[in-house]
C-alpha cells in the first residue's frame, strides 16, 4: 500500500510517496527567497502553480499511478496559512477523486518520525529546529501518548532569527548556510545568552547582533560567528538539561536548521559525552519534504485512525503536544 504526502507549510512544495515505511519518492519545488523573505500570498501562488507538476514527478519517481495510491496525507500545520491551504486542497481533491482516506499531519511530528524511522530509534530526545519553531520534545505516555515539549523558544524560531540577521547583513541567499560561510574563522564578541531552564529566547540576541553590526565597530565575520555560536550553544545546553531530566538513550536533531553542520557537531559532542547515541537525517529529510508527511500518514492509516473530511483543516499554530500519537 503506497501512501502519498503533500507538504507546503513554508517555501517548499514537497510530494513524497512511502510504502511500508520506505520512501519511494521525494519530489519538490522550492520558492526562491533571494535576499528577501517570504510573502505568504506569493509563495502560495507558487505552490498552487506547481502542485500538479510535483505530484506527477513523485509518481514517476516511484513508478506508480495515482490509482495505485491507498491513502493521502497533507501538512495541517504549523506553517504559513495561505501556503498550508495549497496542500490541503490538493490532498482533499485527490482523496475525493480516488475515494481514499485522508490524514492531516503535524509538520514537526513528521520531521521527528522520519528520523526515527531511518535510524530505528524508537524513543529519542529530539531537538526540532526550523524557521518558525525551536523545540525540545520526547514521547510521554501521560495523560496519553504524545510528544511532550520540554523546552522551546518563547519568541521566534532559531531559523527565523538567523535569516533575519542575514537580511540585515544583506547576505544572499538570506539564510543559515550563508551566515555559516561568512562566520568561518570568526572571533567571539560577547552576545546576550538567554536560556531559562530548558526554554530560550532569540530576539535579544538578534537585536544585539544587528546593533553591533550596524555600529560598524565589529566586522561581519565576528558578529556572524558570535551569533551562530551563541544561538547553538543555547540550544545544546537546553538539550543537555533535558537529557539529564529524561535519561533518554538517543538524541536526534531534525528540521531545517538541522542541516547546519556546526549544530550537528555540537549536539553530537554533547550526546556522545553522556554515552548517548546521536542521529541526524540526510538533508533531504531535514529540509521540508513530502516523504515525511507520507510516512506519518501511513502510520496513522495503519493504526486505524479515521479522519472525517470535516477534520481536514489547516492550523497555522498546530501544537505538537496536542496530537495523540496512536501509532506508538
Amino acid at each position: 500500500m503506497a501512501v502519498i504526502g503533500i507538504e507546503s507549510s513554508a517555501h517548499t512544495l514537497g510530494v513524497g510517496i512511502s510504502e511500508n515505511g520506505k520512501v519511494l519518492a521525494n519530489a519538490r519545488e522550492m520558492y526562491s527567497i533571494g535576499s528577501g523573505g517570504m510573502i505568504p500570498m506569493k509563495v502560495a501562488d507558487f505552490h498552487a502553480g506547481n502542485v500538479r507538476k510535483v505530484v506527477r514527478s513523485a509518481l514517476r519517481e516511484a513508478g506508480l499511478k495515482l490509482s495505485d495510491i491507498t491513502a493521502i496525507g497533507y501538512t495541517k500545520g504549523p506553517g504559513i496559512g495561505p501556503c498550508l491551504r495549497v496542500a490541503q486542497v490538493a490532498a482533499k481533491t485527490i482523496a475525493a477523486q480516488y475515494h481514499i482516506p485522508i490524514f492531516p499531519v503535524n509538520h514537526a511530528i513528521a520531521h521527528i518520525e522520519i528520523t526515527k524511522q531511518l535510524f530505528h530509534s524508537s524513543d529519542p530526545l529530539t531537538l526540532y529546529v526550523s524557521g518558525g519553531n525551536s523545540q525540545i520534545v520526547a514521547l510521554d505516555s501521560e495523560p496519553y501518548m504524545h510528544y511532550k515539549v520540554y523546552g522551546e523558544t518563547f519568541d521566534i524560531g532559531v531559523g527565523n532569527m538567523i535569516d533575519s540577521f542575514a537580511r540585515e547583513a544583506k547576505l544572499t541567499p538570506a539564510w543559515g548556510s550563508t551566515v555559516a560561510k561568512v562566520a568561518q574563522g570568526g572571533k567571539y564578541v560577547e552576545m546576550p545568552y538567554s536560556v531559562k531552564g530548558m526554554d530560550f529566547t532569540f530576539t535579544g540576541l538578534l537585536t544585539h547582533a544587528t546593533k553591533v553590526l550596524h555600529s560598524g565597530t565589529v566586522n561581519l565575520r565576528d558578529v556572524a560567528y558570535s551569533l551562530q555560536e551563541t544561538a547553538f550553544a543555547m540550544l545544546v545546553e537546553a538539550m543537555e538539561r533535558a537529557l539529564f531530566l529524561t535519561s533518554k538513550k538517543d538524541v536526534t536533531l531534525c528540521g531545517g536548521v538541522a542541516q547546519s553542520t556546526r549544530l550537528q557537531e555540537m549536539l553530537k559532542g554533547m550526546a556522545r559525552s553522556h554515552g548517548t547515541r546521536f542521529f541526524v537525517a540526510p538533508n533531504e529529510y531535514n529540509a521540508d519534504n513530502g516523504a515525511m508527511i507520507a510516512v506519518v500518514a501511513e502510520k496513522m492509516h495503519e493504526s486505524g485512525i479515521k479522519c472525517p473530511i470535516s477534520a481536514c483543516t489547516v492550523d497555522q499554530k498546530y501544537r505538537i503536544d496536542s496530537v495523540r500519537v496512536a501509532w506508538q
Binding site: Y188, Y193, A233, M266, L267, S273
Partner: peptide, 13 residues
C-alpha cells in the same frame, strides 16, 4: 567545561 561550545563562550558563561 563543555567542549561542544566555543571556548570563549564556555569560560565566560
Amino acid at each position: 567545561p563543555k567542549n561542544y561550545r566555543a571556548r570563549a563562550i564556555d569560560e565566560l558563561l
